[in-house]
Design a protein around this nucleic acid. Structure first.
Lengths: 206, 206
DNA sequence: TAGATTGTTAATCGATTAACAATC
DNA sequence: TAGATTGTTAATCGATTAACAATC
C-alpha cells in the first residue's frame, strides 16, 4: 500500500519536513499549511502537497495539516516510529564526535558501539562507549541485527570496511570517508564530506 | 565564458569527480575515461561527458582524459585553485571536531578561527586555535574578507547567527545546525545533519 | 455563506540517456 | 588501418509548477 515506487528525491525531503514540523510542535503550534511549511523551507507549497500526496491524504481543505498527526505519519513512513541500532566504525576525531553527539536519540537512532582496528585505541573510552576491535564487529552486527552503520575510517580502508559491514548484514551506511563506495543495489549510502560540500559552494564565489 | 548558467546539480557532481581524479593521481595513474570514472562513481559515462562538456573540451577521442589536466581544470572551475579562509561558529563537539579536522587544507580551505558566545568556552584551546568571542566575528570577517563559514551552533541560534554572518559578508555557509536557514538568493547554504541523512535511508529498511 | 487550503491533473520545465559522427 | 572514446544531438524520462475543483 505504501510502496508504489516513490522517487528517492521525495524521500529525501520527508525528513526535512519532519524536522520542521517537530520544531513547530515544540513551539506549541497545532496546525500548519503547505504554504507556511514551504516558506520555512524554501520549497514550493505545491511540491510539499505533491510529496505528501504520494503517501495519503493528511490535510484538511481550508485548514491545513495537523502538525502532530502529520509528524506521526512521517515517522511511520520513514520507519522511524522505532529506534534503529547503529554502529560507528572508526574512533578518530569524526567517529568520536559522532559517539558523543546527542542528537541521535530523539530522532530514531541509538549508537550501540564504536569500533577501530588500531590496538592503541581499542579499550579507550569515547563518551559512554569503550572502543572495540573492528574484528569483533561482524559478530555484533549479526547478534543484534544491526542494519545501520556510520563509517568514519580513512579513505584507504573505507571500501574494504564497507564491504565487511555489508557482508555482515548492514543495509544503510552513512559514509564520512572521502571516497565513493561501490555497494550492491539493496544497500543505501549517504555521503558526508565537508570539503565536498564547501567546494560545491565556492563555484558561486569570486 | 565560464558562465552560461550551469545547473547546480552539475556543479554538485564536479567535486566528486575531482576527488576521484585526485585519488587516481595519487595512485600514479595518468589517463582515465568517462567510462572508468563512471564505474568508480556509479554515474553513467554519458552524464560525466555531458557535465564536463558544459565547461570545455577536456578529453581526447580514443584515449580519454589526462587526469592531472582535468583535475586542474576542475580546480579552476570550482574556484579552488586558491585557498579560502573559513570561520567556524560554535565550539561544541561539532565545531571542535571541524577545527581539528585535517582534511580541509589539501582541498582549498583554511580554518582561520573558531568562535563561541559561551564565556566558559572563550579562551579555550581547540586544536591550534583559541576560541574567540562571537561578538568579535563581524570584525574578523570584514578585516579578512571571509566569505565562507561553518555553522555549528544550537538550532535555536542558527538563524540569528547566520544572518549576522551574512551581514558581515559571508556568502557560503556549511550548516551543521538541524534547521533550515532563510538566506538571500546570493548566499549559498549546504546542510549536514547526520540524523536527516540516516532518516532518508531507513525508509528503505524494514 | 465566504475564505482558505487541500489533493490532483495537465502543462511545463529540466535532467538523463542513447546513439553516433568525428577523430585521436 | 582498426579500435577506442570523445563531444553533442535528439529522444526519453522524470520532476516541478500552475491551476482549479472539491470541500472544510
Amino acid at each position: 500500500m505504501n510502496d508504489k515506487n516513490i522517487p528517492d528525491i521525495v524521500i529525501g525531503r520527508l525528513p526535512v519536513y519532519l524536522r520542521s514540523l517537530q520544531r513547530m510542535e515544540q513551539e506549541g503550534r497545532q496546525v500548519t499549511s503547505s504554504q507556511e511549511l514551504g516558506e520555512r523551507l524554501g520549497i514550493s507549497a505545491a511540491q510539499i502537497r505533491k510529496d505528501l500526496s504520494q503517501f495519503g491524504e493528511f490535510g484538511k481543505q481550508g485548514t491545513g495539516y495537523n502538525i502532530e498527526y502529520l509528524s506521526n505519519q512521517l515517522l511511520e513512513i520513514l520507519h522511524i516510529d522505532r529506534t534503529w541500532d547503529v554502529v560507528i566504525v572508526g574512533a578518530g576525531d569524526i567517529g568520536s564526535a559522532l559517539a558523543t553527539y546527542n542528537g541521535f536519540s530523539h530522532r530514531g537512532f541509538r549508537v550501540v558501539g564504536i569500533f577501530d582496528n588500531d590496538p592503541d585505541k581499542v579499550g579507550d573510552k569515547v563518551g559512554d562507549y569503550v572502543v572495540a576491535n573492528t574484528s569483533d564487529i561482524e559478530e555484533q552486527i549479526q547478534a543484534n541485527n544491526i542494519q545501520v552503520a556510520m563509517l568514519a575510517v580513512p579513505a584507504g580502508n573505507a571500501q574494504a570496511v564497507a564491504s565487511e559491514l555489508i557482508d555482515a548484514g548492514v543495509r544503510a551506511i552513512l559514509n564520512y570517508a572521502p571516497v565513493s563506495l561501490n555497494v550492491p543495489p539493496d544497500v543505501r549510502v549517504q555521503y558526508i564530506d565537508p570539503a565536498i560540500h564547501l567546494q560545491r559552494m565556492t563555484y558561486y564565489l569570486d
